[in-house]
C-alpha cells in the first residue's frame, strides 16, 4: 500500500510521518501531482493560517489536483478547513470540495480551543473501536459547523464538526497523530479503508 503525505510547507508533516511509522507504514512526503494521484491513500495535514496555506497549495498547483482525487483522503486540522468552501480566517476562498463554510469561534471561552476534548456522535468505519466521549487533542481557532457531512462532533461550548466525510474525503479537526491511542486507532482505520 502506498501512502502519501501532501507536503506543501503547511505544517506538521513530520509528526504525521512518524505516527505512520509507529504503525509500520513508510509514507512519502511529496507535493508532486503524479505521485499523489498514484497513491492508495493520501493524508493532508495542515497548520497555521488559511490564506498562506492556500497560497502554498496554489503555488504547487495542488488546488487543481486535490479536488480530483478519488482514493481515500484524510485531512487533518487545517486540512479539514482547507477542503471547505470559504473560511472567515482572512476571508479566504478554500478548495471548495466540501460545501461548508468555516467560522471563527465567537464566545467568551479561550481561543484557540486548545487541549483534549470528547468526541460524540461517532459514525462510520473511521471510528471503529473508538468510544463515545473518548478524548482527542484539538488546537484551532476556526471550526466547521455541524452539517450533513459531520461524522463526529465535539463541543466548545456549542457542538461543531470534529470530523466530516464527503465522498472519499475524510477530515478531522483534531490532531489525529497527537491524540494518543485513540488517534492511532483512527489512523489505522483510515489505512484499512
Amino acid at each position: 500500500m502506498s501512502v502519501v503525505i501532501i507536503d506543501y510547507k503547511g505544517g506538521n508533516v513530520q509528526s504525521v510521518k512518524f505516527a505512520l511509522e509507529r504503525l509500520g507504514v513508510e509514507a512519502t512526503l511529496t507535493a508532486d501531482a503524479e505521485t499523489i494521484r498514484a497513491a492508495d491513500k493520501i493524508i493532508f495535514p495542515g497548520e497555521g493560517e488559511a490564506s498562506s496555506a492556500m497560497q502554498e497549495l496554489r503555488a504547487r498547483g495542488l488546488d487543481k489536483v486535490i479536488p480530483e482525487l478519488t482514493q481515500p483522503f484524510l485531512g487533518i486540522c487545517l486540512g479539514i478547513q482547507l477542503l471547505c468552501r470559504h473560511s472567515e480566517e482572512n476571508d479566504t476562498e478554500m478548495l471548495d470540495i466540501i460545501p461548508v463554510n468555516v467560522k471563527k469561534f465567537q464566545h467568551h471561552l479561550k481561543v484557540p480551543h486548545m487541549g483534549w476534548n470528547n468526541l460524540y456522535n461517532l459514525q462510520g468505519a473511521l471510528f471503529e473501536g473508538v468510544k463515545e466521549q473518548d478524548y482527542v487533542y484539538f488546537v484551532h481557532s476556526y471550526y466547521l459547523p455541524v452539517c450533513e457531512y459531520t461524522i463526529a462532533t465535539a463541543a466548545y461550548p456549542e457542538p461543531f464538526s470534529a470530523a466530516v466525510q464527503y465522498k472519499n474525503f475524510y477530515a478531522m479537526q483534531f490532531h489525529t497523530e497527537k491524540s494518543g491511542p485513540t488517534g492511532t486507532r483512527i489512523i489505522q482505520n483510515f489505512l484499512s479503508l
Binding site: A19, R22, V139, G180, G183, T184
Partner: peptide, 11 residues
C-alpha cells in the same frame, strides 16, 4: 526533538 516526535503520540 526529532527522536521525541518519532516515539511520542501526545503534543
Amino acid at each position: 526533538v526529532r527522536d521525541i516526535a518519532r516515539h511520542i503520540d501526545i503534543p
